[in-house]
Write a protein that binds this DNA or RNA. Sequence first.
DNA 1: ATTATATATTCCAATTATGGCATATTTAAT
DNA 2: ATTAAATATGCCATAATTGGAATATATAAT
Lengths: 94, 94
Amino acid sequence: MKSNLYEKKAQIFKALSNPVRLEIMDFLADGEKCVCEIVENLNYEQPHISKSLIKLKEAGLIKDRNEGLNVYYSLKICCMGDFFNCLNKILETN
Amino acid sequence: MKSNLYEKKAQIFKALSNPVRLEIMDFLADGEKCVCEIVENLNYEQPHISKSLIKLKEAGLIKDRNEGLNVYYSLKICCMGDFFNCLNKILETN
DNA sequence: ATTATATATTCCAATTATGGCATATTTAAT
DNA sequence: ATTAAATATGCCATAATTGGAATATATAAT
């Protein structure tokens, strides 16, 4: 029960424990974006971006929406901003 | 510069991306504890706990203090609670 | 039906994390 | 100086993650 909950939380943190995926989260904080926009703006291979998005989605951090050929991703979590601010403080401190 | 910042944040998330370490963070939320108390309360080997604590400390999430033979660890971060509440919401949703 | 475009998947080698066990280090007490 | 107790470190096999390259799938347009 309880340990299972820690597992699930760890899963979420794991999804966020990668610089590329963090950069994607940051980019999505600006609003919904299609994969192509993300690939254009961040400098990584399209398959890499795609895999990163899927990992974030599986963790429940973002959601997707199809429109023709495009897939639009957006944040599904509202409290990232606060926590990121907190992290910035930590990074300043040490 | 910027990518380096994402690296560092990813490092913090990585430290939190493990159920044992999350359980330790939760336990420390109650207040400062020595390693022995953590080992007694959580059911893991002492070396495992010790290594987990060091990883959390390196990430800047906890701090330590020596007193005789004992080493006391405590949280160095104030915003975990809010973010954990947010995670709970996510976990309820999916 | 063919072609083009957007996105996802598979495969793979290299790196990194995990957790157990044995052992080392440090401090205090006798 | 020895011993005991608390904590940290090193070693190791296994498992998971990483990111690149090639390929597959799906949708739309001609």
